[in-house]
Every structure is written in C-alpha cells, then in structure tokens.
C-alpha cells in the first residue's frame, strides 16, 4: 500500500472493529492487514496502549485446551471511538475536497451512529 495508515487511525480501526463484536488478536490483525496493508506485528502495540488507557477490557475464553484472550470495548473506548469518528469525517471530507474536488457529498450526519464502512 502506498498510503500508510497513521497510529491514531489504526487505533480508531481497532476500536471500530471491537464496537461491533468482541474478538481476539489474530482476527483483528487479519482484518487490519487486509484493509490497510499494515504489518502483522503492528497491532500488538496498539492493543496494549488502548488496554493501558482503559479503552479496552479483556477476558479469557477456554478453547481446545488453552485460553484465547478476547478484547471488549469499554465505555471509555466507546467515547474515544466517537471522537475519532468525528475527526475522521472532517479529515475525509477535507481530503475529498482536494482529491476529487467534490463538495456535493455532505457529511452532515457525521458522528457515532455512522457505520465507518
């Protein structure tokens, strides 16, 4: 990928994935790699940071004789995601204006309710 994804954007993606359902490291990584082309090892530092900030909670689920750690969005993580989505809307429309020259597509709704896909 020629357009690299910044660390905050990666954080936002992780929060968005976890807003839909609780899931585990390997699956989050595969989704991020497929969507953004980041390296397979890029997720761990992001997950750890979000966890330390209190945006994520974890719980272990026993599976075939071992534990799998699931990540769950905390209320604080939800608030952080809303903030990121607002920023993303303004960022995206600002760039679209330059790249496509189209100002017709308005993003008046913006915000938390939107599905970022």
């Amino acid at each position: 990928m020629s357009l690299p994804v910044s660390a905050p954007l990666l954080e936002a993606c992780v929060l968005a994935i976890l807003e839909r359902e609780d899931t585990y490291g390997y699956l989050i990584t595969q989704r991020l790699v497929a969507a953004t082309g980041v390296s397979e090892s890029a997720l761990y530092p992001v997950l750890r940071r979000l966890q330390k900030e209190g945006a994520l909670e974890t719980y272990d689920v026993a599976i075939s004789g071992r534990n799998r750690r699931y990540y769950h969005l905390s209320p604080m993580g939800r608030a952080l995601l809303r903030q990121y989505l607002e920023e993303w809307e303004s960022y995206k429309s600002g760039l679209d204006e330059i790249l496509r020259g189209d100002t017709a597509e308005t993003n008046t709704e913006g915000g938390a309710g939107d599905d970022p896909r």
């Binding site: 490291g25 390296s39 750890r48 799998r68």
Partner: peptide
C-alpha cells in the same frame, strides 16, 4: 503470551511466523 496465542490461532503456524518477520523488529516496536 499475545504472540503465543497469535500463532496458536493462525491456520498455518509456519506461514504466520514468516509473515510476522524477525522477532528483533517486533521487539524494537514494543
């Protein structure tokens, strides 16, 4: 623990290790 679990979740352990790259670089980031 994270990477141990990561490799256990991967369909093909060998491929996953190859894709992850060198442990040195992963450690540097952390």
């Amino acid at each position: 623990n994270y990477y141990e679990e990561f490799l256990a979740d991967a369909e093909d352990e060998g491929v996953a290790i190859e894709k992850l790259g060198s442990p040195q670089l992963i450690a540097q980031r952390i």
